[in-house]
């Protein structure tokens, strides 16, 4: 046991180790193997994307990492004192709480709400263009703004690793581009690591430095793409890089899409 732990942390930069993760679901008349064998080591500050055909169990992996679901097998090791934050497709802002109170939810729950931390959240909201809406209610905000609030709510508890589960799919195309730019900037500025699950290949290539392609269910890692763009900058700019379409084609070929 000790040796395996030492082995897994041979590279001190790794903050999250996933080893042959397995997950099955049980229904009355069947057992479905959703994830068969998923292993990955996430290093500090890394931004990776997981793509795959729909229903392949991408989101399941994040749910397990975040502790919402139990794994059926395999090992997950998180570096000491490292915390995980989870951001979902729906912003799930509470309509009866103001924007600020929505962002303070995590701190309240963990009894960590102090004056300094509250001030930090207010600073975050101000930095990312939500200063005028601190005391507004969610229904006064646009979809893109709400998604930014959801990210700040996730950041409020100061996690080190962010799990993003299709965070932009509820948005229309334009806000999607803009918000993914914002979210990328926020995550980089706050020096977080992130795993994003998405079905949008362009989004994956423009955001992440590594794209993991999963097979159909039961999902296994089919291929890992190192995304090397000639002049990497913001996600929107990255889409203009000359390698972009080559990666797009290469990943597209790997995914088992059925029409």
């Amino acid at each position: 046991m000790t040796s395996s732990l030492q082995l897994s942390f041979q590279s001190m930069n790794n903050i999250l180790e996933i080893k042959s993760l397995r997950k099955s679901y049980h229904t009355k008349d069947s057992e479905i193997l959703a994830v068969e064998d998923f292993s990955y080591s996430l290093s500090d500050g890394e931004f990776i994307a997981i793509v795959g055909p729909s229903g392949c169990g991408k989101s399941t992996i994040l749910s397990i990492l975040c502790g919402l679901e139990k794994k059926s097998g395999g090992e997950i090791t998180i570096k000491d004192n490292y915390k995980i934050g989870y951001m979902l497709q729906q912003d799930s802002l509470f309509p009866f709480r103001t924007i600020l109170d929505n962002c303070l939810l995590g701190l309240e729950i963990n009894h960590e709400l102090t004056k300094e931390k509250k001030k930090k959240v207010i600073d975050l909201l101000s930095t990312y263009g939500l200063k005028d809406f601190i005391n507004s209610y969610p229904d006064e905000l646009s979809g893109g703004m709400r998604q930014r609030v959801a990210l700040i709510r996730t950041l409020a508890t100061n996690p080190d690793i962010l799990l993003l589960d299709e965070p932009f799919s509820a948005l229309d195309y334009q806000s999607r581009l803009a918000v993914s730019d914002d979210v990328y900037r926020i995550i980089k500025q706050e020096k977080k690591s992130a795993i994003i699950v998405t079905h949008d290949l362009a989004e994956a290539i423009s955001l992440a430095s590594k794209v993991i392609v999963l097979s159909e269910r039961p999902s296994k890692i089919k291929k890992v793409f190192d995304i090397k763009l000639s002049n990497r900058s913001t996600p929107i700019e990255n889409r203009k890089a000359k390698e972009f379409s080559e990666y797009y084609d290469a990943i597209w070929k790997e995914i088992d899409f059925h029409v």
Binding site: Y86, L88, S92, F94, I109
Partner: peptide, 18 residues
């Protein structure tokens, strides 16, 4: 109550009373 909101609460490690 919206299942996603409950999921969110659980992801923030809320207990049942919370």
């Amino acid at each position: 109550t919206d299942k996603n909101k409950i999921k969110l609460m659980k992801s923030l490690k809320a207990n049942k009373w919370q």
